[in-house]
Amino acid sequence: MNTQVTIAGVTLKNPVMTASGTFGSGMEYAEFMDLSRLGAVVTKGVANVPWPGNPTPRVAEVYGGMLNAIGLQNPGIDVFLERDIPFLKQHDTTIIVNVCGKTTEDYVEVVEHLAEEPAVAMLEINVSCPNVKEGAIAFGQKADALFGITKEVKRHAKQPVIMKLSPNVTDIAEMARAAEAAGADALSLINTITGMKIDIHKRAFALANKTGGMSGPAIKPVAVRMVYQAAKAVKIPIIGMGGIANAEDAIEFLLAGATAVSVGAMNFVNPYTCVEVVEGIERYMEQYHVESVTDLIGAVRE
């Protein structure tokens, strides 16, 4: 049985990763699991300088998931390279760094810093965070802007580039094609779906930011549909995510056309989710006599 998958020349031991922002840089969940079991750890978004993020409340529970408006709080690339990368290097897993910024220059600065760090296997560029006012999502909601930022990042990046797409668009296939045309090596989707919650007793917004990104099991059907549409539209590999709670969910994404998957909000519900997904995929492969996990990619019957 072979659980390996390859994305832009980088081979992962299995197709299960952590979704950016739900797993820090792995330190917190290393108390619960052996990070070496994971296909990859995708870190929290990191910018060129420290970002304080949004006021609280930053999180709210909703039916079937949660809203967050963290606002990409991060310690900045210098601390990240000194502290988080050495920690992750101790584990036998692939390191993917998620990058955020407000301007093209911000993104490029981070990408250039990371170019000198061979332990970083891939970059994931977040152009789809709904919780910061400037930049960020603006790059992810218009095909020409996405094309521009992808091209610029590719020009400076040493590692393969994954563009992380927003679901808050009319036509995901058009966005996927724009990123591919600009040279993206892979795509990841979906980021959170913009939502809102109002406390009727206080007549107040549940989040200080008013709106937040929705994640968790309730968004899974939207995510599976978008992964399917994006996979049809492009040739580059896709990392699928959105509401994955168990191996069955993950396999759905693979069948829809994803080469790998990420587990996000469900880490909060069960800190052992990622490892359980890895083990569940292995059991499914045994049960259905699947030789290689790659046989599952896009294998839904049309």
Binding site: E28, Y29, P57, R58, V59, N68, I70, F268
Partner: peptide, 16 residues
């Protein structure tokens, strides 16, 4: 007190 998601320091939801 603050609203929390992970409870273990990973999500940055509960800051002061």
């Amino acid at each position: 007190e603050e609203h929390m998601a992970c409870g273990v320091g990973a999500c940055l939801g509960c800051v002061v």
